[in-house]
């Protein structure tokens, strides 16, 4: 396993470089620059500012300078958030985004697997149709609809039970208080719960028909042993394969969710950075995301092999 992991990490370096180059040049091709929106400056001063950030040099030279700094772990200063370096911004934002994302994916996995298994065990019965119907709704309604609707219901109107009112904060982070996290996590996790439960149901139905589950039953094992020990592990394989795309889905989802709920994660920086042509900030967030996706895909592949001993690291 370790040689495989090392090979994969080494293989990730060219991938990262390509991503960095593509983003860098695409950002610079886009019309406008970081200082265009500011009030008009005298030409000498503007020239000095551009020189200070190396913007007067040809793009390929800027790219080499950027790469050189990156090798030393320096993501450069933010063009827009004055007095902050990109690293500092990411240091503040990443833990917030990570807390949100990881909670959402764990919730999605736990709920998705349970619901999918329950549906498969009650194949073609009311429970199955109910779960799968809900899942279909979860997939079709986009995040930018569920987020404001849930904020409206739980944040503005509130729920009224037995004379008590229940409200959840409709926005803000509040230092990561649980109440503030519930709505964003729910919105992020919903589509993933739906997709994972459908995946698990499909593979579980197939595994339950397999010869080795029949063997397990013929051995006289109790039902829960047959399902948990023999069937579930094989049924989880498609979920593990889906984890890579799921993480990507969560990241794009978090851009919307962080913006709507006003959460100070890196997703928000990404949107703002792209609009303001804050070159270094966008680059920093992209590198961060790319490394994250590559790393989690590696974890998913290793997990796959641990679940299925037939897979060999090659």
């Amino acid at each position: 396993m370790w040689p495989y992991a090392i090979r994969r990490v080494l293989g990730a370096i060219p991938t990262l470089l390509i991503i960095i180059a593509l983003t860098f040049f695409m950002m610079h091709i886009a019309p406008g620059g970081p200082f265009d929106a500011q009030r008009h400056l005298p030409p000498e001063i503007e020239h000095n500012i551009r020189a200070a950030y190396n913007l007067d040099k040809p793009v390929w030279e800027q790219f080499l300078i950027y790469l050189g700094r990156l090798m030393h772990g320096d993501l450069g200063p933010s063009f827009k958030n004055h007095d902050f370096t990109v690293s500092q911004l990411i240091e503040v934002g990443l833990p917030v985004s990570a807390k949100l994302g990881i909670s959402a994916i764990l919730l999605a996995i736990a709920l998705g697997i349970s619901l999918g298994t329950i549906a498969a065990l009650n194949q073609n019965k009311a429970t199955d149709y109910g779960v799968m119907g809900l899942a279909m709704i979860g997939i079709t309604i986009p995040t930018f609809v569920t987020a404001p609707v849930l904020a409206l219901i739980f944040g503005i109107y509130g729920l009224h039970f037995f004379g008590h009112d229940f409200y959840l904060p409709a926005g803000g982070w509040n230092g990561g208080a649980l109440a503030n996290m519930i709505l964003p996590i729910t919105v992020l996790a919903l589509p993933q719960v739906a997709i994972i439960s459908r995946l698990v149901r499909g593979s579980m139905v197939e595994v339950l028909r397999s010869n080795y589950v029949r063997t397990a039953r013929a051995k006289g094992l109790p039902n829960h042993t047959v399902i948990l020990r023999h069937a579930l592990r094989a049924a989880l394989l498609p979920v593990v394969s889906y984890l890579g795309p799921a993480i990507a889905g969560l990241l794009t989802g978090s851009l919307i969710v962080e913006t709507i709920f006003g959460i100070p994660g890196i997703g928000r920086y990404f949107v703002e950075g792209a609009i303001n042509r804050d070159y270094t900030l966008v680059m920093g967030v992209v590198i961060c995301y790319a490394a994250f996706v590559i790393f989690l895909n590696l974890i998913a592949d290793i997990l796959y092999a641990l679940l299925d001993p037939r897979v060999r690291f090659a």
């Binding site: 397999s210 080795y212 029949r214 063997t215 013929a218 023999h230 094989a234 299925d308 001993p309 037939r310």
Partner: peptide
């Protein structure tokens, strides 16, 4: 009463 089946590859649980 025990049983053995035709295809011993698919009849054994692959991950155990």
């Amino acid at each position: 009463i025990t049983m053995i089946f035709q295809d011993p590859l698919t009849a054994l649980t692959p991950h155990m």
